[in-house]
Amino acid sequence: MTQVPMEHDHHEAGLHGHDVHDAHHDHPKELGHHWDNLNQQFEAGKLGMWLFLATEILLFGGLFCGYAIWRGNHPDIFAYGSQFLSVKWGAINTCVLLLSSMTMAMGVTMAQRGNKPGLIICLVLTLLGAFGFLGIKYVEYSHKFHEGLLPGIAFYEKPSDSHIWVEIEEQAGDQQETSIATDVAESKEEAELQMARADLPVMPAAEATTNEPAAIGPSGLNQSRVVQEEETYRVFYKEGRIAAQEDQAAMAEYAEHPEEAMRELEKHPLQDPDRPPNAQKFFTIYFLMTGLHGIHVVVGVIVILWLIYLTFRGRFSPHYYTPVDCGGLYWHVVDLIWIFLFPLFYLI
């Protein structure tokens, strides 16, 4: 507890307008009329902030819970979808956010010491971190949007500006050469080709999954051939294909050169016959969770701007810096949630 009750020697009675009644002459101006002293007010503010942060965690808790259930039921979707995220940008963003959390913590210390220039520098650095994070997020999101890697039903529309989308004529030619030898893959490609001939954006084949028989594509797709897969472990190797466990050659190749196999996708998911059913679920939960987190970062930007404004106005002192402390707590929680999001989506 670093705060001491302020001496009641201020006579700037309530001009900041708590209410018309705020005319207690023995109160410092920051002190609400219903508090005995600044320390009591500070402790209450902190307690309120912690409760609010608990509600924030629970708000995200629903989404984390949804993530856990979906991942538990369909690990293949998450293994497949996470290839499309850039670990590089994610890692940079994690560093940016961690650094901004550090500058925020330094800012609180500056406020406690009454170092106004230091506080402003720290808050501005934190603000830069927040903008950096949002900028990188913008790069990532716009890439996903151009590739059509979108949540929900929008996933099944042809991408607007894709690097890996193959036009239908080329695709038909390619598939002759690259078709793989198993019956399973052949039948899938047949379904794929049929849809390609119909000149439609390629929609998910209705397939039974390894775990859940309930997973089928959007309505209207149930006519395509249902393929019951055996229990297999899937690995990804180059060309974005999925090999069955029995495919020893592919396994061996993957074991020797995993980074090469994972190198780069050459197939758009909509054109990939080995895409797991309902692959859009990964992007649904990805956009929901990072989107809600992004909204919190935007709110954080507003909070930091407000803190900078108040600092310029000289509202903080070693006796009164509750808003800085609470804003800092909020920023740390935003950071903390990202610390969980990054590995859950990008790494595992």
Binding site: G152, A214, I216, P218, K281
Partner: peptide, 18 residues
Amino acid sequence: LLFMERLFGMGFFNPALG
């Protein structure tokens, strides 16, 4: 989530989208 599902077809609670 219900709002997003209804507005954007997110499929969080829709069996047709998993």
